[in-house]
């Protein structure tokens, strides 16, 4: 197992390299650059700007220069937020996204698992339909609808929370709820399906035959096997949720990392695009590794040799 984990950790390097290479050339292929604006910059000034950022060099040279920087752990200065480096931006904003994300994830897992198990314990009953219909609500109402609704209700009308911003601990609640609701619905659906998949399998029947109480069978056997699809989904979901969401951060005005994924691309803030992409790639690899380890735990038939 240790060997397997080490091997996987080592694979981060080639994965990041490939991601960096493809992203670098992809974003440079796209029309528009960081210095384009409605008031077009005169040609000569554009030359000055490009020279300042080494963008007048041939692309392969810029690529090598960039890789050299990254190898030293330096992601370079942001094109848009000129007084900040990409390292600083990630260090400043990731903790915010991570806190909102962890809380949202926790909430999503609790609600999702409970309603999934609840529904699966008596399939095609009223409780099944009700909890699934409810979880569908979470999927149909995207965060850009739920967020403003929550804000209107809990902040403007009831005044329990601040409308937006990031000053007090309670400011984390509404964004985390908004972010978690959709994932809760996903988890509920996947958990229900996973449990129904295993519930009729032989080892569960055997456990029942042995006369184990219902709840013990559920916890010890059914859940273990039934959580597989949820866990598979959890890898990418956790990476996405921890790095924040553009929609939620923009609605609640939170200084998180999430909004930079889309905005840096729209701004053609090349260094920030690269930095955020590499960062999320790193998180995805790590999360998937955790998930794969969890597989082995959940299903003894899986082993990594």
């Amino acid at each position: 197992m240790t060997k397997y984990i080490l091997k996987r950790l080592l694979s981060i390097i080639p994965v990041l390299w490939v991601v960096a290479t493809i992203t670098f050339f992809l974003m440079r292929l796209a029309p528009g650059g960081p210095f384009d604006s409605e008031k077009q910059v005169p040609e000569e000034i554009l030359h000055n700007l490009e020279a300042k950022y080494h963008m007048d060099e041939p692309l392969p040279m810029q690529y090598v220069r960039y890789l050299g920087m990254v190898a030293k752990g330096d992601l370079g200065p942001s094109f848009r937020y000129t007084s900040r480096t990409v390292n600083e931006i990630i260090a400043e904003t990731f903790p915010v996204s991570a806190i909102v994300g962890l809380l949202g994830l926790f909430y999503a897992l609790v609600i999702g698992l409970i309603s999934g198990i609840f529904a699966a314990s008596k399939p095609n009953s009223a409780r099944d339909y009700l909890s699934m219909a409810f979880s569908m609500l979470g999927i149909c109402l995207p965060s850009f609808v739920i967020g403003p609704l929550f804000m209107l209700l809990f902040a403007v009308k009831l005044e329990w929370f601040n409308v937006s911003g990031w000053a007090e601990p309670k400011d984390v609640v509404l964004p985390a709820l908004t972010l978690g609701t959709m994932y809760a619905a996903y988890f509920a659906r996947l958990t229900r399906a996973g449990i129904l998949d295993v519930i009729k399998q032989d080892y569960i029947r055997t456990a029942h035959a042995k006369g184990l109480p219902e709840w013990l069978v559920m916890v010890r056997h059914t859940l273990k096997g039934g959580l597989l699809p949820t866990v598979s989904f959890l890898g990418p979901a956790a990476a996405a949720i921890l790095t924040g969401s553009l929609v939620v951060e923009s609605i609640f005005n939170i200084p998180g990392l999430g909004r930079f994924f889309v905005q840096s691309a729209l701004n053609r803030d090349y260094t920030l695009v690269m930095g955020t992409v590499l960062f999320v790639a790193f998180l995805i690899v790590v999360m998937n590794l955790l998930v794969d380890v969890a597989y082995a735990f959940l299903n003894p038939r899986i082993s990594y040799d």
Partner: peptide, 13 residues
């Protein structure tokens, strides 16, 4: 986010 801005104003922020 302009909708949020309006609500911030309404809430006196």
């Amino acid at each position: 986010n302009v909708d949020t801005e309006e609500k911030m104003f309404t809430a006196g922020k």
